[in-house]
Simulated scan of single mutants.
Amino acid sequence: MRSGDQYYNDATWNVTYVDSHDYAPDQAPENQRFAGTQDTWAENLDLMFTFRGIPAIFYGSEIEFQKGAVIDPGPNAPLSKTGRAYYGDHIEGNVTVQDYGKYTNATGTLAESLNHPLAKHIRQLNLIRRAVPALQKGQYSTENVTGNLAFKRRYTDADKGIDSFALVTISGNATFTGIPNGTYVDAVTGDSKTVTDGKITLTCSGKGNARVYVLNGRGGIGETGTYLK
């Protein structure tokens, strides 16, 4: 949790996740894989890929595999009924990989899995994260930020000539003040806003939607889908 960042030398190296092979967010009545709504999952993923830390995805989460299943019900339950069930049936087929996050000619159940709304959501988030250094290594702050899930991140590396500054809001609107003037471009939609007075208001509607406005950035990264739009 963010409140514990004070105990780490550099929290940007923390691995962040919602569920795993041992841990799940729903502890009652038993430890089970994420069982919430799909838009809630999309919102969680937005936060994981834009907030500090390194996002980790438990296999199958991209298609809500074994949703709500108890991760480890004990030695007498068949593996197929657990949260660790065999996933291989869902990735049978072929695919031609062209580049990072880009592919064609997917077939079989693999094609179905890749076309799932959350799988497409993760792919776009990953492309955006890769294109914005601030989302990978930047320090975060909520100072002078109004909004429920909103923050700013900045990463600089003078030796490499990097100064990456991003404003993020998830599922709702947000206002940022005291920011550098300049042109900010939304990595999701490509929308461009020019700031001249150190203030910007970002509009974002729909649970699981997000805006990532980057100073002197580029927009329209990846293919928008059910949630990022």
Results as ranks from 00 to 15, higher is better:
R2V: 08
Y7R: 03
D10S: 05
T12W: 02
V15D: 07
V15K: 07
Y17F: 15
V18H: 07
D19H: 12
S20N: 12
H21Q: 07
A24I: 03
P29R: 10
T37Y: 05
Q38N: 06
D46Y: 04
D46A: 07
F49M: 01
F51M: 03
G53L: 04
P55W: 13
E62T: 03
I63W: 07
V70S: 06
D72N: 14
P75L: 06
P75S: 12
P78K: 12
S80G: 05
D89K: 11
G93L: 09
D99L: 00
K102V: 14
N105W: 13
T107C: 04
H121K: 06
Q124G: 11
L127A: 15
L127C: 05
I128H: 10
I128C: 06
P133L: 08
Q136G: 12
Y140R: 12
N144Y: 13
N148T: 14
F151L: 08
K152A: 04
R154A: 08
A158L: 09
D159A: 15
K160L: 12
G161E: 06
G161R: 07
D163N: 14
A166R: 05
A166K: 03
V168K: 01
N173G: 00
A174Y: 03
T175P: 00
G178I: 02
P180Y: 04
N181C: 01
N181S: 04
A187K: 03
V195S: 08
V214A: 04
I221M: 08
E223G: 11
E223R: 15
T224L: 06
